[in-house]
Amino acid sequence: MKLAAERVDWTVHGHKLLDDVSLAVEAGETFGLIGPNGSGKTTLLRVLAGLRRPKSGRVLVDGLPMTRMRQRDIARSISFVEQQAETLDRIEVREAVALGRTPFLSPLRSWSDQDDAIVSRALDDVGMRHLAGRLWHTLSGGERQRVHIARALAQQPSILLLDEPTNHLDIRHQLSILQLVRQLPVTVVIALHDLNQAMDCDRIGVMDAGCLVDIGTPRRVLTADRLQRTFGVHADILDDPQDDRRILRFRHAL
């Protein structure tokens, strides 16, 4: 599925958090969002997910304006993994992941063995099957993050939005989650804090003060000049001779 934003604005108390943002993400593409804290990445993801309605402009899913879609249809197409999503309910891990199947249930379509299998597969994909019976409040921050991602996978979306999904994860689980995301046959928009991780996206967009200031392939966008202007750091851009990957090494701008 394609996902697009056309001239999207979002304002809170007179402060513009998104300013005339337009982008188009192709079906099956992995699109990275980068930018300093407070640049608008999370707000844009929430607008793309249908959780916030833009003050002006519009979001389109496969060319259809989101305002013309039922909420259930949006939930069946788009899954959003937020940075932090807490609950006070005494809920087990498997029950939390099973919430991803909610958009597909109705009085005419009750829980089935297929739903059970989908939830089990999602738990396996994030390495949480062995903790399926644990209570949510007993989990570590990293374990909770993996449950959030499993819930999104159980939803079987065509479009997956992730807001810094590797927060709270150790390096091994960061790599496994990012590899899993890259292998999924879905359209992905992912906000990333680690710019070296952004190198693996098909394209990236740079957010700064609510504006999308640059967009393109990582090699074209992540230049020393762009990194200094947007992030205020000097960067050395190195080429790994083993796999032709680029590696960024940062120094504080004086």
Rank of each mutant, 00 (worst) to 15 (best):
D124W: 07
E82R: 10
T230N: 10
A122F: 14
L51Q: 14
T187A: 09
T217D: 02
R151Y: 07
D113L: 13
V47F: 08
R251D: 11
I118H: 11
Q242C: 04
L227Y: 11
I34M: 14
R182L: 00
A198M: 08
Q83I: 03
I215N: 00
L23N: 04
V47A: 03
Q228I: 06
A4D: 07
R251M: 10
D115A: 12
E95G: 11
T187K: 01
G141K: 12
A96N: 02
P54S: 12
G100W: 07
V59Q: 14
H234E: 15
G232W: 08
A117I: 03
A96R: 04
L175V: 14
I34G: 13
L64Y: 09
Q197K: 13
A150E: 08
T11H: 05
R70D: 05
V126H: 05
A209W: 08
Q183W: 00
F250P: 10
L64W: 07
L184D: 02
V126P: 05
R68I: 04
A27G: 07
V61M: 07
A224S: 15
V93W: 03
A49W: 05
L184H: 05
F31G: 00
L51R: 12
C211K: 15
F250M: 14
G38V: 06
R245C: 08
E82L: 08
P218W: 03
T187H: 03
I149M: 13
P65F: 09
R94M: 03
R53S: 15
R203S: 00
T11A: 06
Q242G: 00
G141H: 12
Q71P: 00
A224N: 13
R251S: 12
A117E: 10
G28F: 02
G14D: 00
A253T: 01
D73R: 10
R68V: 09
L139Q: 03
L254N: 06
R109D: 04
L123I: 04
L195V: 05
Q179W: 01
Q71Y: 02
R146H: 10
A198C: 10
T102G: 04
Q156P: 13
S140R: 01
F80G: 04
V8K: 06
D208V: 03
D244P: 00
H148C: 02
I171Y: 07
T42C: 10
A224L: 00
E6G: 01
I78N: 08
L23E: 02
L192Y: 07
V181F: 11
S112F: 06
H130I: 08
M199S: 09
Q242K: 08
A27S: 13
L88A: 14
R226C: 15
D208Y: 02
P185S: 08
L212R: 04
R172D: 12
A27I: 00
I159L: 10
G63K: 12
A49C: 06
L3I: 15
W10K: 13
Q174S: 09
T138V: 06
A98D: 04
I149S: 09
V97S: 05
V126W: 07
L23T: 11
V147T: 02
D236W: 00
H252E: 12
Q156D: 07
L227K: 11
D116E: 06
F80I: 04
L45Y: 03
R229W: 12
K41E: 01
T67N: 13
L135W: 06
K2L: 02
T166Q: 08
P241A: 09
H252L: 10
L60S: 07
